[in-house]
Amino acid sequence: MLPAAIINGLMFGAIYALVALGLTLIYGVLHIINFAHGAMLMLSLYAAFFLFQLANIDPYLSIAIVTPAAFIFGYLIYRYGIGVLSKGKDQNILLITLGLSIIIENSALFFFSGDQQTVSLSYSFEAFDLGFMYLSYPKVISFVAALVICALLWALMSLTDMGRAIRAVAKERQGARLVGINVEHIFAVTFGIGIACLGAAGCMMLPIFYVDPYTGNIFVLVAFTIVVLGGMGSIIGALLGGFIIGITESVGGLLLGESLGQIGISLIFILILIFKPTGLFGSKV
């Protein structure tokens, strides 16, 4: 039972990592906390859902559509929304993104109703037999896809000019401005990339989860926990934190039962913030 729980945790952990990666990237570069992260994840789940429902596009193929769309959405919403409205105050951004999450969540409720939606793929119920457990195809595909996207993100950040510009802004925004980098543009791009991670994550999550307007609430604390656990702004931290939280959740569920098992996440969040607020891997982007 325990090995099965650990493997299941790893599978989900990779997707968590992707969600947290978006959040930590935004924090690391813009130094803001995006409280609407969960709501935006929920939106991308819906995007994947409707692409499947209306155009019959496999959610894993939707990654190619939803991810760029999420990037554009993120870019625009930062450049012409959050960035303009916040006037640079930390608590303002928290509250504005809270307002944004309220708007997104309730728009979903308004337009899509509160019903839970799931998709059923032709291969949904096929599984690998590992001897001690069955591992469904979608879980494995999601796991692999999440790792691939993480690798791509890493490559983007360390090998491209855009990645270098982002890191320059993260390190020294005044300096970056002086050498002619358009900081506002980079901020919006970073925000867009962060949301694009959610776009990909949403597509991978849909086949193994469900979506309703409140799905985001479930993940917002999860994502924050991963990010503080891994160290705000640390990409490696987000990856490892994702796995740790994924495993904690599934092992916690196994040992403490479905209900009490959820306690691990908020407990870890509180303990880390109180005792080691720099996280386990407190390095910067």
């Binding site: 906390i33 928290l94 924050f224 109180i274």
Partner: peptide, 25 residues
């Protein structure tokens, strides 16, 4: 432990969530 701003806001959220899970269990 010196929490303020967004961190304090989020830790209270986590406390409420912790209590919700406890009350549920």
């Amino acid at each position: 432990s010196g929490l303020k701003g967004s961190y304090f806001a989020l830790i209270t959220l986590a406390f409420a969530e912790l209590l919700r899970v406890l009350a549920n269990s």
